[in-house]
């Protein structure tokens, strides 16, 4: 039997909002330690990896490893019925289940809703993502990053990200013209979620499709800050921590440098 009880249903709502527009169906791998999801968009340019450890749950039981093939649109419809402060319980048999139950309990205990969603058979190819030493890490406000991606997509369909010792520059150009947004490493880190830290081993200069970045920033409500990790000619990593019990990591393949 697999059963996981989340005190704050709102978190699962936010996770679904973060993945459903990028990956329609996903394999939720559940084992004794965590629930992990890895999925790619249809063009194999972007990938999302979600990890939620057992300690995020008020109650977590996973007698045998089980993989739940989830249709994220169906799951999202169910979670739209949940309030942020509802308790959400996920339940599934652990012998090749063909469905998953979701129970929503209102905070005052007066309302209980239960749903059964059919699981889907998915043959996605999973990718092995090697641990990598990145040339640059940029930690910044997640809201600020979302704003930059949204603003620059008015000017072009791609953003050039260049990191130097002291700052990170986001540039885009198209028939409207050219736009540059430069963030400078914050001298004082008084409020973490408003400061910018650039940790550079060597300069990077890469170009990425803004369409995908604007899908990644749907995870903005999950964390006040976001960390970008970059290396020359390697996929960009955009990471949102889920408290200290997990993360949502997006990977985006760069445009080919001429």
């Amino acid at each position: 039997m697999f059963e996981a009880k989340l005190q704050q249903g709102g978190l699962l709502k936010k996770i679904l909002e973060s993945v459903k527009d990028l990956v329609v169906d996903g394999l939720w791998d559940c084992d004794g330690a965590a629930i992990t999801l890895q999925g790619m968009d249809s063009s194999h340019v972007a990938l999302v990896e979600m990890l939620l450890r057992a300690e995020a749950f008020e109650h977590y039981r996973c007698d045998r490893n089980v993989t739940l093939g989830m249709n994220h649109n169906h799951l999202s419809k169910i979670l739209k019925c949940a309030n942020n402060d509802d308790i959400v319980i996920l339940k599934a048999a652990d012998q090749n289940p063909d469905s998953c139950s979701l129970i929503l309990e209102s905070k005052n205990g007066e309302k209980t809703s239960d749903f059964v969603v059919s699981l889907v058979r998915i043959d996605t190819d999973q990718l092995g993502i090697p641990e990598t030493e990145y040339s640059a890490h940029v930690k910044m406000s997640s809201g600020e990053f979302q704003r930059i991606c949204r603003d620059l997509s008015q000017f072009g369909d791609a953003v050039q990200i260049t990191c130097s010792k002291q700052d990170v520059k986001f540039s885009s150009s198209g028939e409207t013209g050219k736009a540059n947004i430069t963030l400078t490493h914050s001298a004082t880190v008084d409020k973490e979620e408003e400061s910018v830290t650039v940790d550079l081993k060597e300069p990077v200069d890469l170009t990425f499709a803004l369409r995908f970045l604007n899908l990644f920033t749907k995870a903005t409500p999950i964390s006040d800050t976001v960390t970008l990790s970059l290396s020359q000619e390697a996929p960009l990593v955009v990471e949102y921590k889920i408290g200290d019990s997990g993360h949502i990591r997006y990977f985006l393949a760069p445009k080919i440098q001429e």
């Binding site: 063009s43 194999h44 340019v45 990938l47 999973q126 990718l127 092995g128 996929p235 990977f251 001429e258």
Partner: peptide, 14 residues
């Protein structure tokens, strides 16, 4: 517009 890499160019299938 520049052409686009795919993730399989960087990550191996499991």
């Amino acid at each position: 517009t520049k052409s686009q890499h795919q993730l399989e160019n960087f990550f191996t299938r499991k």
